[in-house]
Amino acid sequence: MNSAGTSRVKAVDAIVDVTGTLILVFLFLFPFLWMVSMSFKDRIQTFQIPPLWFFQPTLENYRALFAREIFGTYFVNSVAVIVFSVLVSFVLAAPAAYALSRFDFKGKKDISFWILSVRMAPAIAVVIPYFFLGSFMGILDTRLILIIAYLSFNVPFATWMLKGFMDEIPTEVDEAALIDGSSRFQVFSRLIIPLTANGLAATSILCLIQSWNEFTFALFLTTTEARTLPTIVTQFLTFQGVVWGEMSAAATITVLPAVVFAILVRKHLITGLSFGAVKE
């Protein structure tokens, strides 16, 4: 009797759980679903009322998007800017992280604080001087100015992440190798870097996601030549109206790599996105 009552309560609970879950999931995923479905619709289907859920998909929007010259240009720009900025940020961040993790020196606390504070400066507060820096050096609307701008958030981020990963390796590892006659550089390059390989991979992918999604710098520091993919959607907000189909196709293609990357680093996402404030 009692157990039957409990199981009924459990069943009701389960139903509430499932319906609640489905509603929440639907609410959150709806914009995604709609964007993807709209990217496969033609003009008439887009504005059908009530909205169409099942329809004959068309690839016309994607065809039109790929035919645009800017799509290729923006895509190549995005990839080039991200690859260079992530590579350079590791060259700067890995030694700094090693120093902060292993060495004791005067002002170490202050230096860590200043590196973190860089990250906290609102992008818009530095975008204006970057604009002048770019025009002064004649590199406005080039990939170079974007690489520099993206370094400004990738370097502090990578330094903090890598320091966290290096802190997890016991210092005895370094000391044993040093006693065996290795130099500091050998310890760093042959021991620490391979031992933090997972951390390096996770950090670089988190940097990739942030740089891939970046919008403000790309919008202000470039005009035509060095524009990146996320800004392409603004091309479809015209005075004549919104080009829904193509815009949705462009948005879908831009979101896809970020989602794939996020799935790859799901274990490190929380530590990464909270800048090490929360460890899981």
Binding site: P31, F32, W34, M35, I209, W212, N213, E214, F215, L219, P230, T231, V233, T234, F236, L237, M247, A251, T254, V255, A258, V259, F261, A262
Partner: peptide
Amino acid sequence: VVSLGIASVM
């Protein structure tokens, strides 16, 4: 993980 610009047009 969606870019803010994309989220806006979504």
